[in-house]
Design a protein around this nucleic acid. Structure first.
Length: 588
DNA sequence: GTAGGGTTAG
């Protein structure tokens, strides 16, 4: 259900409640408690998942109900106080929750659980731990729900190991606890550990439910383990699971990620009561398999069927518009997002910035960026990357400096984005300066991608000697990509001796790669050194290196003459040299 | 009156 729908529900429930008051219908603790429940569901925490207005409105409504509970003399009612606590906790307002909690004449395990859940949702695991200790100190025994809330607190705070230790300490964890920890691993992309733990679960004869299977499907998909996925599919053919939407969404995702989009469609078509997650899985699956046009049509169909798109739907459909470079469709989606109050969702915002950048409207991307509340590292990275993609090196560097100034911590991807921008805009020395600050000032270790940017940057500027010196000092000098980048630059600047060295490094590092042979031969050819070019091609033949498949033969319309085309359908004339030698692709 | 779980970004 969309943001508007959520806040509409809160407003409607509240309107009914006022009607009750106006008509002097007796208000009891049950009616107060249920209207609080509606207020809890409206909010999504601080800068939450969608528009903060929703949080505000449900919080304000909740506060009004809070006043009524006092007015009607229910301030000592344990159940009602727990509902109030829950309302504030779910709206992320822990200060108010705290205030009620300390003034409650009587608390129960539920009260403690609600406080732990509230802090957990805000990723404050230390506060959650504090509450766990305090509850035990006051003689309350933690229950299953306490443990699940504690696990969520650890996972949300990014300390899954602490969660695992807690889980391992449980004598017989509930199925919910199993599912929580499995999901923690799955969402942190530690799919291997998730699957390992799933096996452990079977070993201990703990029966999985639809949730367990859905989580495992997601991890199997993450590892592209189609066979494992098929086994889970077989298990889920059992009567109770056949039409389950949790399993359906998991299966759709698994088959799509393993490239079996037709199978995913079959599962989608078989389920009668599809929910928004199933639609989102199918749409993402189409896009993942490069069927973005179809995915966009699918999104429109989803709306026609009366489904309310979620932030997931919007993030996905925007990525389709980006891949299609369709600015007009992207703008349409943008206006829907603004209307429905998802502008401050970090995923949606990043997807909007990406869409505008890929469509070449970098000013619109920046406008979205500036308007967004609740930016995170990815938001900044996306905007810097947007500038890089559009050749705006200076703007990228300025924004990077703003990011550092704002206190947002850069990560490895921030540096790939800003260094790419420098490289593409010829800001060689700026790039080197930023590169040098990575580890020293920001504690981010340079990886091969960062070195590649710098080598590319030096190479494009013709500073080949500096590039060579740097490579010799690099920890990742045995990664072929480094030498490939250098070799390309040698070609541009016709530096034969360095090209020879780079190619020879590549012959050793990546023996089956034909690219260095082709590039080196082309460098010789372009200088008219035909004998050297021929020698390289002979060496390639002698080493039994075959030109990469992935190129295909096409038939010339005037006859049977064959040309090579690359993936974009462009003719690759350079490779004709190789073609004429009769070596080259056997596969089409 | 409290919990977990399937879908999204660089």
């Amino acid at each position: 259900m969309g943001g508007l729908a959520d806040s509409d529900q809160v407003n409607e429930a509240f309107r009914l409640f006022r009607l009750m008051l106006r008509n002097r219908i007796h208000v009891d603790s049950v009616s107060l408690s249920s209207v609080l429940g509606v207020c809890s569901r409206g909010g999504c925490g601080e800068f939450g998942l969608h528009d903060s207005n929703d949080v505000l409105s449900s919080d304000v409504h909740g506060q009004q109900v809070h006043c009524l509970t006092i007015k009607h003399g229910f301030e000592s009612d344990l159940h009602l106080n727990n509902s109030l606590l829950d309302m504030y906790a779910k709206n992320g307002n822990m200060d108010s929750a705290e205030m009620i909690f300390v003034n409650m004449p009587e608390v129960s395990v539920v009260s403690w659980n609600v406080m732990i859940a509230g802090y957990g949702q805000k990723s404050q695991s230390s506060k959650a731990i504090e509450y766990l200790q305090r509850m035990q100190y006051h003689g309350f025994e933690p229950d299953e729900i306490t443990y699940v809330n504690m696990l969520v607190a650890c996972i949300k705070s990014g300390d899954i190991e602490a969660g695992r230790q807690m889980f391992d300490g449980m004598s017989s964890p509930s199925l919910s606890s199993w599912n929580t920890i499995l999901s923690g691993y799955s969402q942190n992309e530690n799919h291997k550990e998730a699957v390992k733990l799933f096996r452990e679960m079977q070993f201990r004869s703990v029966h999985p439910d639809r949730t367990t299977l859905a989580i495992i499907l997601s991890s199997l998909a993450g590892m592209m383990l189609l066979e494992g996925g098929r086994q889970v599919h077989a298990v889920s053919q059992k009567a109770v699971f056949r039409t389950d939407i949790y399993l359906a969404s998991g299966l759709i995702g698994m088959y799509s990620k393993c490239g079996k989009v037709e199978m995913a469609k079959r599962i989608f078509d078989r389920i009668a009561e599809l929910d928004i997650v199933c639609w989102n899985s199918m749409m993402a699956g189409l896009s993942l398999n490069s069927l973005d046009k179809e995915a966009f049509t699918f999104f429109k169909k989803m709306r026609e069927k009366g489904m309310f798109p979620s932030q997931f739907s919007y993030a996905t459909v925007l990525s389709c518009c980006a891949k299609l470079s369709s600015l007009s469709q992207g703008r349409q989606v943008h206006s829907q997002i603004a209307r429905e109050g998802y502008m401050n969702d970090a995923f949606v915002g990043s997807a909007l910035i990406d869409m505008y950048s890929k469509c070449g409207d970098v000013d619109a991307a920046r406008w979205v960026f500036d308007m967004m509340l609740g930016k995170n590292t990815v938001t900044w990275n996306e905007m810097i990357h947007g500038y890089a993609q559009n050749g705006c090196g200076d703007e990228a560097v300025l924004l990077y400096e703003d990011m550092i100034g704002s206190g947002e911590k850069p990560d490895g991807i921030t540096f790939v984005a800003v260094l790419t921008a420098c490289s593409h805009s010829g800001l060689v020395d700026t790039g080197i300066k930023i590169f040098n600050s990575m580890q020293q000032e920001h504690g981010v270790e340079p990886l091969v991608d960062h070195y590649t940017c710098i080598i590319d940057s030096l190479g494009r500027a013709g500073r080949l000697h500096e590039a060579e010196v740097l490579i010799d000092k690099m920890p990742c000098k045995y990664d072929p990509i480094i030498w490939e980048v250098l070799l390309s630059s040698c070609r541009v600047y016709a530096d034969v001796s360095l090209a020879r060295r780079a190619a020879e490094e590549l012959f050793h590092l990546d023996p089956q790669n034909s690219a260095p042979y082709v590039l080196l031969a082309n460098i010789y050819s372009s200088l008219g050194r035909w004998d050297d070019a021929k020698a390289v091609r002979e060496l390639m033949s002698y080493n039994q290196v075959v030109k990469d498949p992935g190129y295909s033969w096409i038939e010339h319309k005037n006859g049977m003459q064959a040309f090579m085309v690359d993936d974009n359908g462009r003719m690759v004339d350079d490779e004709v040299v190789v073609v004429n030698d009769g070596m080259s692709c056997s596969s089409g």
